[in-house]
């Protein structure tokens, strides 16, 4: 039983399927990012840095390690892929005071990361004006080839839109067992990316919030496993 599980996942990793959005070939990474090999471009969405401390300010003392956990995963991704450009799709900072609350060590780490590559902060609703002290450039949105990168997805029709904001996740039932994972939701004209932040929750792709964005029943949820990414057709999915 255990052995089977392992071999299966190894095969899957090697045969990681390609997500095509308006002609661009993208790889969905199990870490919750998208890698565009042709442009050597790495995309992450909704980092929500300092979400933990924003709860603490309201009397719920969540462990203050979410920022460093998120940064550590980013560091590993960047070291593994060596992108020439990184796009953070907005809501990178949980609120306007996030930068002020950030631990000094974490701030240094973040500045080092943004210096290592061409770093682009897309403005989000939580961070309409991302702080400047960490470096990187700020854009409302960004066009690269056939793709447009923005925070909040716009109603269909979309042409090559890569967005975040909704924190998509999906649930599927296999042999009577329900599995719920973060996912990339895509119908080939757009991709909505899952939240990358350590404390960010998820919204099921069958929620009505997606109604104007994805054609009902005709899209795929690229569900994130521990080491693999699994595309599942929308008609197979379950709501929450």
């Amino acid at each position: 039983m255990f052995e089977e599980a392992q071999t299966l996942s190894k095969d899957r990793l090697n045969a990681s399927p390609v997500l095509r959005v308006c002609g661009a070939s993208l790889t969905v990474l199990a870490e919750g990012a998208i890698w565009w090999e042709a442009e050597r471009l790495l995309v992450v969405a909704d980092l929500h840095l300092e979400k933990g401390s924003s709860f603490a300010a309201r009397g719920i003392a969540l462990p203050p390690y979410d920022t460093r956990a998120t940064l550590a995963r980013l560091e590993a991704l960047i070291a593994g892929h060596r992108p020439s450009r990184l796009v953070a799709l907005g809501d990178s900072f949980h609120d306007r005071e996030a930068a002020a609350r950030m631990d000094d060590g974490d701030a240094v780490r973040l500045a080092r990361l943004t210096g290592a590559t061409d770093w682009i902060w897309i403005a989000g609703n939580h961070d309409p004006v991302p702080p400047r002290r960490f470096g990187g450039c700020v854009h409302e949105e960004l066009n690269v080839g056939p793709l447009t990168f923005r925070h909040e997805p716009r109603p269909a029709p979309a042409t090559g839109e890569i967005s975040g904001h909704l924190h998509p996740c999906a649930a599927v039932r296999v042999r009577g067992r329900r599995l719920r994972r973060r996912c990339v939701a895509s119908d080939g004209t757009r991709a909505i990316m899952p939240a990358f932040g350590a404390y960010a929750g998820g919204l099921n792709v069958l929620d009505e919030a997606y109604d104007e964005l994805l054609p009902a029943g005709r899209f795929h949820a690229w569900m994130l496993g521990a080491r693999t990414v699994v595309p599942v057709a929308a008609h197979r999915l379950e709501g929450d």
């Binding site: 039983m1 042999r175 795929h220 057709a233």
Partner: peptide
Amino acid sequence: EANEALLSEAADSLIEEATRL
């Protein structure tokens, strides 16, 4: 621990469909 294997199973019949789309 078996969940991971199950998740892969969800895709088994679907990968083709997914890439064909």
